[in-house]
Simulated assay, not measured.
Amino acid sequence: MQRSTTLKRRLSCTDLESAKAMRSTLIQWPRAGSPLLMLSAEKDGCRSNSVYNPADDRVDETKSDLSGYRFLGSSGKWFLVVDSQLKLYIIDVFSEGRIDLPPLESLKGSLYKIERVGENKVRNILFSDLSPGDPHTAEDLRGRLWVGHNKEDYVVVWHFEMNDFLGFCKKGDDHYREILTRTDVRRELRGVKDMVLKGYSLYVLAIRDFVRHLDLSGHGEDGIKDVSENHKLPMWMPSLSMDEQVRVNIDKITSSSESIAVTRSGQVLVVYSYELGNSQRDRMFHLYKRDPKDLDPNTYLTRLLEVHSLGDEALFLDLGTTVPADHTRGIEPNSIYFTRGDRIRHRNPSRPDICVFNLTTKTIKHRHTLSNFNVKDAQWFLPS
C-alpha cells in the first residue's frame, strides 16, 4: 500500500480513533541519526501529530497512534509525552513501545505535594500552609528526557511554568523526587528560564542568568548533587556589533529569546535569538561562552565571548546539545536547528519558526512546505 507523500486533510477526533488500524507499517524512515521533525497540529479541539522528513520533503503518519499527546522532549527515537489527563509516558515514535511513568501525584519532597483536580487538572500545594495553587492542565507542563543506550536507564525532568520546583525520576523509580528552585537555593541560582538534560547532568539557566548544574546520578531518596560553579556575577552578553545595531534600528524586533545549550565537550553556551518584523520572518542568532579567564570564582567581571563557529558540529536547540555534522545524514555543519525560543518558559505567545541557521553565512533556511499546515508546535529530533 503506497502512502501519499502529503497529508490531504486533517482527521477529526472520531477519524483518528478509527484510523489506528489503517496506519501503514511500510514507511521507509531515514538513516539513524538523520534529523526529523515532530509536528503537532490542532483543529476543533483535536490534536494530531505527524513526522516530517526533510530529506524527501514529506509528512507521514507513524505506525502507532500519536493523537492526543503533547510532546515535551526527546532523546533519540524516544519522546516524553503527556496526554490530556496529565499522564506521562515515554514512547517510541516508530513502534508500539511505551514506558508508563509514575503519576504526578507521586511527587515526594520536603515542601510540595500534588493532588489531582478531576480528570484533566492537578494542583501543587505547599505543605507549610496547605493553600492550593492554581490548577494546571497538560498545556502548562514542560519537560526534558534522556534515554541511555538500549534503554538501560532514563531520566525524566518536568515542571509547571512559574512554579518553584522540578520533578524528576529515573528508571526503576515509582515516584518523582522534588528539586527545589528557590527555597534552600543560592539566590543567584534561583528560578528556571531554560534547562538542558544531558545524561545525568541537568543544566538550568536561572532567572538571574547564572547556570545551575545538578548531578542526578546519585542514589537514595534525594539523589541530587549541586555541582554548579561558584562564580560571583551572572553571564553578561556583550553588546551587538555596530552592523547589528543598525539592522535592529531599521527593523523592529518582534520577539527574542535566551536559552542555553551544552556542547559535546560539556561547554555551556548561551543562545540569543531575535526575530525582526518584516515579511521574510528574518531571524538572527548569537552564541556566547564564558571567557576561560573568568572561570575563577574570584573573578569580578564575567562577560561572555561570542562564539562565531561551531566547527564541524550542529546545534539542535530543541535538544539543547550539539552533534557531529554529517552530510550523509543531512546534518549541516556550523548550523543551528530551531523551532521556537520558548520551549521551557513561555513569556509571550509565540508560533513555531522552523528553520536552519548557518553561522558561517548568517543565512537561514525555512521549510516552506510546512506553511501549508496549521502547525501548532514542532520539535527537531534525531532518531537513533
Rank of each mutant, 00 (worst) to 15 (best):
L11M: 14
N53E: 12
V59S: 09
L319Y: 03
R190A: 00
K193V: 05
S128W: 04
E313A: 09
K171D: 04
V271D: 05
R283A: 04
Y203P: 12
V93G: 01
P102A: 01
P297K: 08
E313T: 14
L295S: 13
C46R: 11
T25D: 10
F79S: 09
L166G: 02
M235D: 14
S4Y: 07
K43E: 14
I336P: 11
G341C: 10
E161G: 04
V262S: 03
D83W: 08
S335E: 01
W380P: 09
K121C: 00
G109P: 02
F381T: 12
T5K: 15
H327D: 10
L80E: 06
V211Q: 13
R58D: 02
V147F: 09
D294W: 02
L301V: 12
D44R: 03
L141K: 06
P333G: 08
P297W: 06
R212S: 03
S12P: 09
I224S: 11
L126E: 12
V51W: 07
D184V: 11
L189G: 06
N348E: 12
V185I: 11
K376W: 07
D291M: 05
T360Q: 14
M237C: 14
M22V: 13
G143S: 07
T339R: 10
N249W: 13
S67K: 07
T62F: 00
N53F: 02
R9N: 08
P324Q: 12
M242L: 15
L180Y: 06
R340E: 13
S256Q: 15
K171I: 01
H231G: 02
G220F: 10
R144G: 02
Y112D: 01
S273K: 15
R190Q: 15
D251S: 11
T263G: 06
E275C: 12
E188S: 14
W78M: 08
K170N: 08
L39G: 08
V122E: 01
I336T: 13
L86E: 00
L36F: 05
T6L: 07
I27E: 13
P352N: 09
S50M: 07
L214I: 09
R212A: 02
R3F: 00
S95E: 01
P35I: 04
S64H: 10
N298I: 00
G109W: 14
E244D: 07
K289D: 00
V268R: 13
G172T: 04
G76I: 03
P234Y: 06
H159P: 00
L141M: 14
P383T: 06
T369H: 13
Y203H: 11
D153I: 05
R58A: 01
Q379K: 15
A378D: 06
F210A: 10
M22D: 12
D60H: 15
V268E: 04
V307G: 05
R340P: 00
A32F: 11
T6G: 00
N278T: 07
